[in-house]
Design a protein around this nucleic acid. Structure first.
Lengths: 255, 255
DNA sequence: GTGGCCAAGTTGGCCAGCCAACTTTCGTCG
DNA sequence: CGACGAAAGTTGGCTGGCCAACTTGGCCAC
């Protein structure tokens, strides 16, 4: 009975998963120790084996435990960031690391979408989009330049926000605009004049680029963004396996 | 009855998933059309609803379809690389794109593991490791420098391989060494003298770096590698959502 | 002691069913 | 004609059960 004070939202299996995650990272099962059998956990939590399996699938996807037929699950990494919405929101991510996120809106214009933007946001020809250029900071130091294109429905809300607002996903959520899915592409690009000026680096110096298209629950694109990070400030970290995959972005540590 | 010629290995839900994936990418349901209801699919394939749900969860994780309570699933992207083992093997990945993978072993040495390597591979102090330096090519042109550290059990097999062998995961599999899970970290780094010489770029020029630790089904590390890619040759692409995540690496296209 | 075989334990997979939460549609009423 | 509400349709979640595939450890024979 470890679920007296419910620790996660809604469904049972999420509570079980959250509880197990905490037990694992706190080292209750040893570093490369074995988890109890599914049946034992089911009885312990007072749920069915199917629910336990659903919870364990989450931990498996996060790379926390192994999962083989015939053997108990084994604890893998005893520490891992929870990859919920931290990839969808710079603000959430920064706060989860204990850093203070900041930002400044450099420009916001409204103009017809070009071909690439219509493609990404699935817009009709001639539709107008809102384009923002933002400098993002971590505890005061610039780390990233963000160029975002919004479709009209979203851009109208963004344009109303005060220029010094930190998080954008939160006010957008209050307007009924949800960020739930995203496609990311990561590569290297050279800094242009704007990047260099804002980030304080030389023109042509390498930046880590993340292209991101975010959609709402219905699959409608709500944002298309190009973020350019200073090297050494962030890295992207992924766990994948033959069964499933998970991802998280984290601050770069030494080497 | 669309499963007459089984298209995927083993389990039923994988076959259903593979069949649906093909149906979606071939446009059978329209580009942003709706999928049949779970119950309808279950009847169509002659399986239970639970099995269909398991199959759809895979497609959901790959970002192929949405998934909301109350509404039919909606087709999202109609094309996506299958992210099975393509991230675990340069050779697999290259072939899946129709490119011809090549490689050359530059050096292979055996020496005691340093602290970082012991940490990554979970080795006892004093254990010897095998360190390789390889140049990887795509259809003849160099794209990547790979520095890999193997624990003894794996390194002994790698050292036996002829220096011009292309794929390493395949011969290793025949020796009972499986690659199933991996943790990846992606960032930017400057080329050192070796990188510059092998890749034909200037020293100090930016490279996309992927650090990778691979484990076998039991969770035992079998490889620790640092891959450095020439900019413009590859990018990493990820799909994530509030429910789950998937990842694939793909060749970089224009812009 | 050593090797092989067998049985117990464990996870993967599949089924059938039930209810709740949510979305959409449609009909009714003002 | 529009707004509201009811009903149907759909997915999320959970239960309980069953069997197969696989791993592990111990027992037994040699």
């Amino acid at each position: 009975m470890a679920l007296d004070q419910d620790r996660a939202a809604g469904s049972l299996y999420r509570k079980v998963a959250a509880d197990l995650r905490e037990a694992i990272t706190s080292g209750s099962f040893g570093d490369s120790g074995r988890l109890p059998a599914e049946g034992a956990l089911a009885e312990q939590y007072g749920v069915s084996r199917g629910t336990v399996r659903q919870a364990l699938a989450m931990l498996r996807a996060d790379g926390l435990v192994t999962s083989r037929r015939g053997t108990r699950r084994v604890v893998l990494g005893s520490a891992r960031v929870q990859s919920f919405s931290e990839l969808l929101s710079f603000t959430h991510w920064a706060r989860s690391m204990g850093e203070e996120p900041g930002g400044r809106l450099e420009s916001l214009i409204r103009r017809p979408a070009d071909a690439a933007e219509r493609e990404q946001l699935r817009l009709e020809p001639g539709t107008e989009v809102y384009v923002t250029l933002r400098l993002r900071t971590l505890s005061g130091t610039p780390v990233m330049v963000e160029r975002t294109v919004y479709p009209p429905r979203v851009g109208e809300v963004v344009a109303q926000l005060p220029p010094d607002v930190v998080s954008h996903t939160e006010p957008l959520r209050e307007h009924g605009i949800l960020f739930t899915d995203a496609d990311h592409t990561i590569d290297v690009v050279a800094a242009n004049a704007d990047d260099a000026r804002l980030l304080g680096c030389r023109r042509g110096s390498p930046l880590l680029r993340e292209k991101r298209r975010t959609t709402d629950p219905t699959g409608t694109p709500v944002e298309w963004s190009q973020d350019r990070y200073l090297p050494g400030t962030v890295a992207f970290s992924i766990h994948n396996s033959l069964a499933s995959s998970a991802l998280s972005r984290h601050a770069r540590d030494n080497d």
